[in-house]
Amino acid sequence: MTSRPDPALLATPAEELFAALLAVLAAKGMVSEAELAARIQSTDAASPAQGARMVARAWVDPGYRALMLADGTQAAEALGIPMLGAPPLGVLENRPGRHHLVVCTLCSCYPRAVLGYPPFWFKSAAYRARAARDPAGLIAEWGTVLPPGTEIVVVDSTADYRWMVLPQRPPDTAGWDEAALASLVREGDMIGVTVPGSMPEPMPERGGKPG
């Protein structure tokens, strides 16, 4: 490592600094517009829909659920979700009386391979500060109220793993197929700020759902 860079240079407005960095790196042949576009495309392909597929499968298939809790990376790959180069994925199961909430108090570690880009709130100072200490008060901001006596386990994602939550299956979904179940699962359910069915949402008509 060489000497410390000039703070005034680093204080250049970020958009300008980024354009200049890209220009220098492109001139050196280290990055191209095509590579950037390809990365953006593959990153955009990861979304909460991926994690939701895993959750729905775990709800209908006990063998898959066991695999998911033992090795989240293998479980994701089993559904065709690309995990190559991604940090190992751990999955924590909500049960009656035990709820999990994921936070990264040090930065913004997030299970991107299965949920996509971290949402704005996950990266905020307020979320990072409050989650470790008063998770019940924090998730109330989403309108989430857990049954009395539920213990909240806060998972501070500090190192090489990434964590997602396997929420509990809503009680009134007997007989639903996987696609219908997956459509119930939102981003926040897999981090623990919400639980499936906790907020009324207009449900589009779709096949496989009785009614």
Partner: peptide, 24 residues
């Protein structure tokens, strides 16, 4: 000092700049 701060739970779309920085 952050305990009384509310969390902005609204969705924020990423900008072109955000995506490009992430990709780099």
């Amino acid at each position: 000092k952050f305990l009384c701060e509310t969390v902005d739970t609204a969705p924020h779309a990423l900008t072109r700049f955000d995506r490009r920085v992430d990709a780099l």
